[in-house]
Design a protein around this nucleic acid. Structure first.
Length: 244
RNA sequence: GCAACAGCCGUCC
């Protein structure tokens, strides 16, 4: 247990190399590694591009009296999805389902994000439908993933329809939601509509952050609207922002 | 206790 805490601490401190060394050293000495230790190392592997190693550890857990949990599956599914290995991510998702693991909104959101980012919008929608059929409520992360997928596919109108659904289903948008939509509107050159959302978010009590500003500023600058872009930039600095 | 979301820039090709 205290080893798990140490492993967790090392990863958080950014000492990935040391963490794995400790992890393997402990294994060799016959230490019993608990689920948290496995999950921490597996997530570390996923985030450092070593998804195959992560997958190997997930397999190892099955034989060690610490079966992979929903978090273990979540890390590896997300790791695979982030490097576009969606079919494998989906297979793991099916495997977890077949083992009776209660899949949650995090797993569904990861998959929606992954399929969406590679333009497999139909599949992203199907996963969204499946989760709702299972009475899981999409949260703001889930909706943001779907909206971003539509924006990247240049389907801003569809994104706006989903934005309405999200509000109808009582999921409050956040600053990230608005940043995604503003990005989509800028990509579609609908700047005046982007400004409408810019205002709307503030009416909802949400402040644009550095990403929201950058989205709007670079959107304007890309089409040569330098004066509006620099005006916003000045406003950003005046509001106490630190530019990236 | 551990897993999921947005912009620009940089590195590589």
């Amino acid at each position: 247990r205290s080893y798990s805490i140490l492993i967790h601490g090392l990863i958080k401190a950014g000492c990935a190399r040391e963490t794995y060394e400790l992890f393997y050293a402990m294994k060799e000495q016959g230490c019993v590694l608990d689920t948290l230790a496995y999950n921490t190392v597996i997530d570390g592997f996923c985030k450092s591009g070593k998804v195959n190693k992560a997958y190997q550890l997930l397999e190892e857990m099955k034989g060690k009296g610490h079966p992979p949990t929903v978090v273990t599956y979540g890390s590896v599914i997300d790791g695979l999805a982030k490097i576009d290995r969606l079919d494998e991510a989906y297979m793991l998702f099916e495997e977890a389902k077949s083992k009776g693991i209660e899949l949650n909104v995090v797993i569904y959101s990861s998959l929606i994000d992954g399929f969406g980012k590679v333009g497999r919008i139909d599949e992203a929608y199907l996963i969204m439908e499946e989760m709702m059929q299972k009475d899981l409520t999409p949260n703001v992360y889930t909706w943001n993933c779907l909206l971003d997928a539509l924006v990247k596919a240049e389907e801003i109108n569809e994104a706006l329809v989903c934005f309405q659904s999200m509000k109808d289903l009582k999921c409050p948008p956040n600053t990230i939601t608005y940043s995604i939509l503003i990005n989509g509107l800028c990509r579609a050159r609908k700047f005046s509509k982007a400004f409408v959302f810019w205002q709307e978010m503030q009416k909802q009590g949400l402040s644009p952050n550095v990403v929201t500003y950058t989205t709007m500023i670079s959107g304007l600058a890309k089409v040569g609207n330098i004066s509006e872009a620099s005006g916003l930039f000045e406003r950003f600095k005046a509001s106490g922002g630190i530019p990236d």
